[in-house]
Structure formats: structure tokens, C-alpha cells
Design a protein around this nucleic acid. Structure first.
Lengths: 245, 245
DNA sequence: CGATCAATTGAGTGTGTTCAATGTCAGTGG
DNA sequence: CCACTGACATTGAACACACTCAATTGATCG
């Protein structure tokens, strides 16, 4: 769980290369599969990277071909608004599956840009589909994931509409806490913001200025502490409270 | 294509009852399947209804079991916000597939409430999954639909965030026009609003008051004409213009 | 060390909200 | 047939929150 335990250590020497021993063991897809099935899944995957900050795993112009699982690092997906601005549509972390939005489309719907040094597993989608036909358990898992994605996206709509800037920010920090845990004792947890404030603002549907103000406000309320690229959450319970109010 | 050609006419006498000859021929799922495959699909479906205005096809409390295809009529899905208000999350019309949000969840995520006399086909999801294992084409179709759903929901987020009340309303009317066509010549089309203004407002993330003002504004601009439960769109091109501006 | 970009802060504006009042329409009963 | 009712829709006035624009500070990198 500690964040600095390197990636190398996770590959026992003598192990076969590639995804055979994926750090995350294809976290989101693999759980619940037999070893044999897992092996089948791993046989179609390819490791990619490491990508450096700012590089793209895929871009909007490219034909949709594969999904990607994040082994280490983090990724943002962004598109262009009608006005020509960059719009951040999501953040992904270790174990997350990226590219679901493009399923059934001709091309990717976003640029998937890396926020730090990042390695991923590529899963060619047509092969994944074929595999699903032989592995009902895997098929089930994929459907489940897509359902989750739909639910999550749906709740983001409510999130975006009916909540104030402060509430959105708190919700975001809460999610970030769960996904990207660094330290996390009962009353105090701290999050490293791998993405820029501008990206966060865009993701939350705010101007950077408004985000900045919201941060300051929460700090003055004693709920968080803003150290630039690191935010400390002092008062975790008040989060859920604020969200429900 | 003509919308008033009844449902009975689509069932040749002597044909087996049920969904064997679904009016919509399982529009969203069936296309591209062989007759034999289609028959397999239809063998797991059950007709439900007619439901009357206000009745629920399914409710939040119920265990997720089935997806539903709308044969005739229309449906809204709604949930409860943190503050306890009703939130309309979507509208569905003939041929649409309802319930995708619940895939992989324990229970349905919404109440699916009927807006007029409505008939649906029930598709038990576990049977659908099993069927998919034997019919890669169907599996592909389902995945495609889920992808579409994700994309659609995603774009709704942008929709909700960066557009003014007028723009949202225009976008909504545009979609409604495509789905729910009554008359539709090149410069003039008219939409019947099966749902209440309050539902529309909720769906667009507005107060009913704001929606009302937006309607008036667009009318004064000569883009639409508001006849209570029917809206005439006078100036279809200006819609896309307004959206991009 | 200056250059550049990100983040912050301030003042003024605008769009949608809130709250309250009025208007409209369908259904019901006198 | 008309008055009454209750839900839905519209309108108005004051307000709140996030936006815009502009200036300042801070961080990073050559």
C-alpha cells in the first residue's frame, strides 16, 4: 500500500516477462478467475510504458483497439469542449481500467495523458471479446465493470449539478483518498495531488479561481489543509456531513 | 416508420404470442442477428404491460433481474437526491433499452415510471448473459450498447456543466425531436411533451422556474413556440448554432 | 537570475436560484 | 353550468454563487 515500494520489487526474478505476473494481477478483471483463466487473460495482454508525464497512452484520433489497465502511475482523460477548451473527464489510478468510453465507437473519445511515470497493460478488445465467449466468468466480470462505470458516470452528473463548489471538492478528495491512499489513520489522511489544480477544476466543472477559493474556504473551516500539491484532510467525518447537508 | 401503425398489425395472425414478433423486433438488440439467433433472443423475453401513467416498471428497492425494451410508450427513470427531492435521470422511448445502470448492482438504481400507456419486453439478465456465451454476435451487440450508454452519459455531463439553461433546453428538444418524431419537415417540427415541465427541468438540472423562463426566451427569439404540452420548433438550424456558440 | 506557467487573490458581473404570488387547466361536486 | 379544488406552470424581485477579467504571487526550469 505504501506508495514508494517501487515496481521492480513486485516482479520476482526468474518470473516470465510481460503481464504474466502483472503487478496488479489485472486487478479489476482478474479477481474471481481461476489460475488457468487468468493465464488466458494474461496471454493477450502486453505491457506498455513507462510513459513519462504528459505523454499519451492513446489519443482521440486513434482507432479504438484496446483497453488499458494501469499497473503503476496515473492517467487523466481529456477531450475538447465546443469552445475549444480542454475538458478533463476523469482520473485513473493503479488497477483502474481505462478506455471503456470507446467501446463500440470507431475511435477513442479522449486523450489519455499520463500524470506521472506510468506503466500499463494493453488489452486488445477484440481478443478480449473472443476470450469472453469461452469464459462466461470473464464476460460476467466485464459486464459488471461496464455497469459500474455507467453508475459511476451517472452519479457524477448529480455530483456536477446539484452540489456547490465546496461539496464537489470534498467529494473529489474523498474519492481520491480511497483510491490513492498514502497515509490514512482514522482522523487524518493526506493526499498527493498528482494532477494540476487546473485539471481538478476542469474535472469538477469549475474555474481554477473558484477551486482555489473553495480550497481556502474549506481550510478556513478547518476541514482540510492545502499544501500546494498535497492536501491534508483533518476532519473526515465532516465530509459526509457536508455532502448530505 | 410511421408511428401510428398500431402494434396488432405487426403480429400476423397465427404467429406465436409473446415477443416472438416484437413490434420493435427488439430494435436495439436484434438488428444484425440471424433469424435463428433472433428467435433465441425472443425465447427468453416476456411481454409486460400495459402499464398506465404513473405506474412503475421497476422500483429502486427491487433486486435487479431484467432489462426492459420499450415496445410502445415512454418511461422516465428517477432517483432521490441527498436532499430528498426527486431527480429525473433519463427519458426512454419506443425501442430503448432500460435498466442498464443496474447491471452488476444488487438492486435497480431508479424507479422506472411510465409516462403514458406503455408496453415493454422483459429480458432476464442472467439468461441474456448465458445466451451471449453462445452468440458472440449478441455479446458484441451488448458491449456496444453499454459503450454507447457510457459515451452518452459522459456527454450529458459536459452538457450539464458548461451550457446555459437555453442551450440545455435546445439540446433536449433536439434529441426529443429525433426520438419522438411526429411531424418533421425540414424547417418545422413539433414535439409532444409526454413528461411534465417539472420532469424536464429536473432532468436538465434546472428549477421549473428557470425552465419556464428559458422557454419564454427562446420563444421571444422566434426559435420555438410553446403550446403547453406541445412545443413547435420553428428554426431547427439555429439549434446547432446556439449549441456551439 | 529572469522567463514562463500555475496558482492565488480581488472587484464587479451575470445566470440561475429562492421565495412568494399569480395564472392555467382538468377533474369534481354542488 | 359554474364554483371549488389541487397540481402544474408562469411571472416577478432579491439574492447567492460561480464566472470574468485583471493583477499579484509563487514555483519550476533553463
Amino acid at each position: 500500500m505504501a506508495e514508494s515500494d517501487g515496481n521492480r520489487a513486485a516482479y520476482p526474478p526468474g518470473e516470465k516477462k510481460g503481464c504474466d505476473r502483472c503487478t496488479t494481477r489485472l486487478l479489476c478483471l482478474g479477481e474471481g478467475l481461476t489460475d488457468e483463466q487468468l493465464h488466458g487473460l494474461e496471454s493477450i495482454t502486453h505491457t506498455r510504458g513507462p510513459y513519462q508525464t504528459g505523454q499519451a497512452v492513446y489519443k482521440m484520433e486513434e482507432k479504438f483497439k484496446s483497453l488499458f489497465v494501469i499497473k503503476t502511475g496515473s492517467v487523466k482523460i481529456e477531450s475538447i469542449s465546443h469552445e475549444g477548451n480542454n475538458l478533463v473527464d476523469g482520473f485513473f489510478f493503479r488497477g483502474d481500467l481505462v478506455g471503456l468510453e470507446a467501446i463500440g465507437a470507431d475511435r477513442y473519445q479522449h486523450d489519455a495523458v499520463v500524470l506521472e511515470e506510468t506503466r500499463v497493460c494493453e488489452l486488445p478488445f477484440d481478443q478480449l471479446e473472443t476470450l469472453c465467449s469461452f469464459m462466461p466468468r470473464l464476460q460476467h466480470k466485464i459486464l459488471l465493470l461496464l455497469g459500474q462505470k455507467i453508475r459511476h458516470t451517472n452519479s457524477a452528473i448529480v455530483h456536477g449539478r446539484y452540489l456547490t463548489a465546496e461539496q464537489r471538492l470534498l467529494g473529489f478528495l474523498q474519492v481520491l483518498c480511497r483510491k490513492n491512499v498514502l497515509q490514512h489513520d482514522k482522523y487524518r489522511s493526506s493526499v498527493r495531488l498528482v494532477m494540476s489544480k487546473g485539471d481538478i477544476a476542469s474535472y469538477l466543472g469549475l474555474r481554477p479561481e473558484s477551486l482555489s477559493r473553495a480550497l481556502r474556504k474549506l481550510q478556513s473551516k478547518g476541514i482540510i489543509r492545502n499544501y500546494g500539491k498535497r492536501v491534508e484532510i483533518l476532519n473526515l467525518e465532516s465530509i459526509s456531513g457536508s455532502l448530505c447537508k
